[in-house]
Design a protein around this nucleic acid. Structure first.
Lengths: 247, 247
DNA sequence: CATCAAGCTTAACTTTTGTTATGACAAAAA
DNA sequence: TTTTTGTCATAACAAAAGTTAAGCTTGATG
């Protein structure tokens, strides 16, 4: 049930079988299925317990009064949303699905038990939330400093590496269920410019993208071209391995 | 000692005198003074205990290989950096000062005691770190979706409201120790364009900025003009008050 | 006080990115 | 099947933002 989360956490530390069992049972208590392009949480809602993405893609987003929308984060299988958010009075952003999503609602109390118990597991969960924050910071850098080409390439690298960390890539290929409009709202570009930039990435032979299938032909080359440094994902050995591939 | 932090936390909840004493003593244990435009923490360093800004401005930033720099966050008096970051192996970004800074280094163990003890205080500290994350998300929206005019105005609103929350504004005025180059690196614009945009904000009579003194003549008007909605700062009553001013 | 350096301001010009529009295509709905 | 709708692709043009360069202020320093 919590296989993706477990796989992700094990990049940070190895978990005991009790740890894994506890996670798995927490994920089993209450699951929910939401259809594609639907909202899970609305801005203004009272925060509930923690959601764990079991399957599918979701995103955090914020909408301005005039309709402009910014996608703030992607939530992939194994991602936890809002570990401690129940402290706040209301949500300041929404969470919506990209594809159909299965999620586990983990009650606050269960979460407390998990983080209060084994040091290993609670450290691993702290690590997950620190990595989430690090990703958010990197997005600020990405949108603030990089060119359109770099921004898009960087996003694709990140998504690919994160998916690979939970075993959701096949060789150099992964599923990419985003429309160009969604990509545009993610990296702060217009749809037309995203299209132009995708053509550019294709024409230099770094990627293929057809339908929902993304192939990154030479990941190391793409990383270099867009200055993607995976250290902010703190993937331990795998992160280091990627670094050395770069040289 | 921890007066600014206490004032900030009291926007969320009222603290007992034991809570305040505990914070004050934690802030007294080891303080450090760093001069202006100097680094506090370098990317690649091993994370240490928690730093509390007692006085002055600092910022988180990341530098790309070719020298481009993005300021990721501002750390103002009363701000805590990296409450739980010691879980990570190394820092993925740097922290530098803007002005001369006095900070308190709170050992991990002291921090653990503060968050493990009184529910009130530990909730307040959780709130502080959730607000930090919310600010980071809002910056993604700001840089991703807003025009230069809105971006700059939004930044000024945020800094003003955050300073006001710790009592560091005088009427419609506050200290703004940033150079235009630093502002540029914050909102992803060139220095020249920041200058142009500042002129625009001045010419429509929304702000004055001379030397280090920023005056926001009509905060509500500026908020409306740049779509600044302070709800993401979760300042409780003060936040709501601002909302109603908008109408 | 004079000198210097950093930061600010402005202009002219270039590049990047956004906008509008249109057609092709493909998947979903009637 | 036909129709509709959403997505992708491309072009032509417009607007926003970047670059380079120069002169100006101001505050620090000798």
């Amino acid at each position: 049930m919590a296989e993706f989360l477990i796989r992700k956490l094990e990049h940070f530390t190895s978990l005991s079988s009790e740890d894994k069992l506890a996670l798995d049972q927490a994920a089993r208590q209450r699951t929910r299925r939401i259809r594609s392009r639907d909202d899970i949480v609305h801005e203004g809602d009272m925060p509930q317990g923690v959601n764990l993405i079991l399957d599918g893609w979701a995103c955090r987003y914020k909408t301005l009064e005039d309709g402009r929308r910014q996608i703030i984060a992607y939530l992939l299988p194994g991602d936890l949303c809002d570990q401690t958010v129940s402290v706040l009075r209301e949500m300041d952003h929404s969470i919506g699905t990209v594809t159909a999503v299965t999620l586990a609602e983990i009650p606050t109390e269960t979460m407390r038990q998990l983080t209060a118990g084994q040091a290993r597991l609670s450290q691993a969960l702290a690590w997950e939330s620190l990595v989430t924050a690090a990703i958010q910071r990197e997005w600020t850098v990405n949108i603030g400093q990089r060119t359109a080409f770099e921004r898009l390439g960087h996003l694709l690298c990140e998504l690919f590496v994160r998916l690979r960390a939970v075993g959701l890539t096949q060789g150099t290929t992964c599923d990419l269920p985003l429309t160009q409009a969604e990509i545009a709202d993610t990296i702060g570009l217009s749809v037309v410019h995203v299209n132009r930039t995708l053509q550019e990435l294709r024409s230099v032979g770094l990627i293929s993208l057809r339908g929902r299938e993304l192939t990154i032909h030479r990941l190391e080359a793409l990383q270099r071209a867009v200055q993607f440094n995976p250290n902010y994902l703190h993937l331990g050995r795998e992160g280091r391995h990627l670094d050395s591939n770069e040289a």
